[in-house]
Nucleic acid binder design. Structure first.
Lengths: 221, 221
DNA sequence: GCAAGCATGATTTTCGAAAATATCCGTTTG
DNA sequence: CAAACGGATATTTTCGAAAATCATGCTTGC
């Protein structure tokens, strides 16, 4: 029923890095990880190598692994390329998507809206984040290009690391109604208005980049 | 002076997969690899995990690794996304590149031309391929985006697997002067004519896709 | 005083065997 | 006869220890 230990290690490490359990730049020592996840070195090293290929961890020969650092420049690059990749994918999905895709978008937006409305404990921030990811993935699902979808996942993971501090601070971005942006984006998409949808998507991400940038300069570390 | 065994394994396996030493779909058994590369399982598994993250090998839990299969659809997708990624990167490089970048392009084109002129033994096909890769990389080097450059490398590796059979067959593509295409592309780039350069780049790749497609239907296996 | 050399301990990397799981093939059973 | 079962073999996956390398701090020599 369950997969291998290496797969569990990959999932757990990826989660803990993206969600900020391990801080950027922190060294990941084999002995510590072995104790934390209760497994030997072999599955851990396999997971770390996969994460290195995804640029979530850095590795130096004979000096082990560290969590990949965060930088304003990398974040801005990642957001800019997200706009490029996702604009292309969104136009393709609008062109190719059928009813299954359209109803998937509606469902994902609705599930996201439900969670946004629930303003209870901070624990649900992770559920909110999962649904946010699912919504953006649903928009592109019908694009027909495995490569675009993979690049989307890579860039989403890269930028999620930067968004977590904002989510945790619950800073309701003065004046920004993110859920309204999501609704408008979904509406334009379902109306098959590619130009408008892409414009809304780009605006959405540029505002996100601004918010992250502002926060990173406020709280450098 | 040398790195770890895992790094050697990664480089050797990547080379042997891209260059076609291992055929697509072939299972990669640990015992065989251990004998072939003269090392234990640990460094091999690390290399295979990295290659799995790059989609050059497939893995199924407890059933080991196989060389990722080739398909016409994946090739066409990869080429289409290369056009997207590299067009964006080329425009940025034209905008941002300085003298170092420009002379790098000239040097890479010249080195490629020298090798094209040498029509000697088939052994030099690999040198030709290395210089071809270097030329395309040089065009984009100044784009300023690590993410675009990484996607370029990923897609280049993916499409190189499809081009190898054509290179080996030395089929001089009836009527196609590839080196003239490279020269024209470099010329437009150095003249900072983004629109022309991007158009030439797209044409270059679309013709390549056609040639691969034609060959794949001739020689299905 | 201070840099270079050298033990010492910490950490990563690799190996070889053991454990876990899959695959094959002959047998049995309905 | 087909399908399910079971044992033997092949293969992957994981562990624990050994080997290799790095980091630290002390000593030595100038």
């Amino acid at each position: 029923m369950s997969g291998t230990l290496a797969e569990k290690a990959y999932g757990a490490l990826r989660h803990d890095i993206i969600r900020g359990t391990f801080s950027a730049g922190q060294p990941l020592r084999m002995a510590d990880l072995s104790a934390r996840y209760d497994m030997g070195f072999s599955p851990l090293r396999e997971a770390l190598n996969r994460l290195q290929a995804e640029r979530l961890v850095d590795a130096v020969a004979l000096r082990g692994f560290t969590v990949a650092p965060l930088s304003l420049a990398e974040m801005e690059d990642a957001i800019q390329q997200r706009i490029l990749i996702e604009s292309q994918a969104l136009r393709a999905a609008i062109r190719l998507g059928g009813d299954d895709w359209a109803s998937g978008v509606v469902a994902a937006l609705y599930a996201l809206t439900l969670q946004v409305a629930r303003q209870d404990g901070a624990a649900d921030i992770w559920e909110l984040e999962a649904r946010h990811h699912a919504f953006h993935r649903a928009l592109l699902a019908a694009c027909g290009s495995p490569w675009l979808l993979e690049f989307f996942e890579r860039l989403y993971a890269a930028t999620e690391r930067y968004r977590i501090p904002i989510l945790l601070a619950r800073s309701t971005d003065r004046g920004r109604d993110i859920q309204a942006e999501h609704s408008a984006l979904a509406e334009a998409t379902l109306a098959r208005d590619g130009d408008l949808a892409v414009a809304l998507l780009a605006g959405h991400y540029q505002r996100t980049a601004k918010a992250i940038s502002a926060r990173m300069q406020d709280v450098p570390a």
